[in-house]
Simulated scan of single mutants.
Amino acid sequence: GDSQCAVIVGSEAISTVLALSTKGETPDWSEVIGGDCEDQGFGLEELLEPALFAHGASGAIPLYALAENARRAKLGMGLEEYRLEIGKLFAPFTRVAAANPHSAAPVERSAEELATITARNRIVAEPYPRMTVARDQVNQAAAIIVASAGLARALGVPEAKWVHIHAVTAATELKLSQRPDLAANPASIASVEAALARAGMGMGDMRYIDFYSCFAIPVFNQCDHFGLSVDDPRGLTLTGGLPFFGGAGNNYSAHAIAEAVQRVRADRGSFALVGANGGWMSKYATGIYSCLPADWSAGDRFAKLPKAANAVPVSAAPFDRAVVETYTINRAPKGDAAIFIGRNTAGERVCGNADLTDPATAAVFEGGAPFGAQLAVSQDDRGRNIGRIA
């Protein structure tokens, strides 16, 4: 390979930053690092969707909520029923988080508690109660050292501590508004399947699993595809998940990998799978780990998968009619805002805001089932698309 040793490190200090901000303190944490810096990041241009942002879907919570409600529509579930499904998924996560000394919220909770709307567990964007979204206000850090077997041996690292990488894959998804199925994340499925194939294994061979869990839908997508139960006896998280262990936004999966290393070291011969998600299901990477050695001589245990070519056409032009495919309602102190994604009369993807001041429109959207509704759309003085039940 190109390198005999590499160090991967990341951290978040959002909790401290917010605490200092409330006090009006702005400490100087800047530093100057020598050497060259090569940015191999995904790039904001692949994440930003100006039209969605302009209509209030300007962060992870409403963007994931749009996908989550699309899945709910496919299942034919009402809001309360679906919230309980999220609770059933995440209740086992809270048990893991409660036993993890590094968790930001080490409290075990029931499915009903997670799904019940209270003052402390308010809706942040339909269908999400506050407790079921990634907890990004954390102080957390993790680091990983990757070395060749030769260097590890030369440095005297005991072979009993060696953990081998059996496969790594990475995939990039279409932008949310371009996806044929707004609920699906085929790139993530392709990444996991490719990693398993390159390791010569199946999901049943994985004794330890950590699926990225910023919200329910990235986990649900894996469960739906691989036929996994939300109460799979292996568990679907090693840390406790982003809503409960903590969502160190730039580095969560390093924590998952660190947990996977500890598991397979203590259970020799076992395998662990870690799935890492980024953006709004915009990219996915999968790693498989074990104390058993892996033969990398053929160079075929890593793959960067091709991006899908079946993007739905998206229109930024004004339109006067739309059929709703999915939606969310942002709940905020300054007021609620309903956001929809749908199709115009030409079949192109469009987005806008539903007019909650219109009684008929509010009744349909607040009722939780505007899927398939016909909207009459006009543009306001800010250029936003405002839809009302036709």
Rank of each mutant, 00 (worst) to 15 (best):
120 R>T: 13
122 R>F: 13
123 I>L: 15
124 V>P: 04
126 E>G: 00
127 P>Q: 01
128 Y>P: 03
129 P>E: 03
130 R>S: 07
131 M>N: 12
134 A>L: 08
137 Q>M: 12
139 N>L: 02
141 A>W: 08
143 A>D: 11
146 V>D: 05
146 V>L: 15
153 R>C: 05
154 A>L: 09
154 A>H: 08
154 A>F: 01
155 L>C: 14
157 V>N: 10
160 A>L: 13
160 A>P: 11
160 A>Y: 08
165 I>L: 14
167 A>K: 00
172 T>A: 13
176 L>W: 05
178 Q>R: 09
180 P>W: 08
183 A>H: 06
183 A>E: 11
184 A>R: 11
185 N>E: 11
186 P>K: 10
188 S>K: 07
188 S>T: 11
190 A>M: 10
197 A>W: 08
203 M>V: 10
204 G>N: 13
207 R>G: 03
211 F>Y: 14
212 Y>N: 06
213 S>M: 01
213 S>L: 00
216 A>V: 01
217 I>M: 11
217 I>W: 05
218 P>E: 03
218 P>L: 02
221 N>W: 04
223 C>R: 08
225 H>W: 14
225 H>P: 12
227 G>E: 12
228 L>P: 09
229 S>V: 06
229 S>M: 14
229 S>K: 15
231 D>V: 13
231 D>L: 10
233 P>L: 11
233 P>K: 12
235 G>M: 11
236 L>N: 11
237 T>F: 09
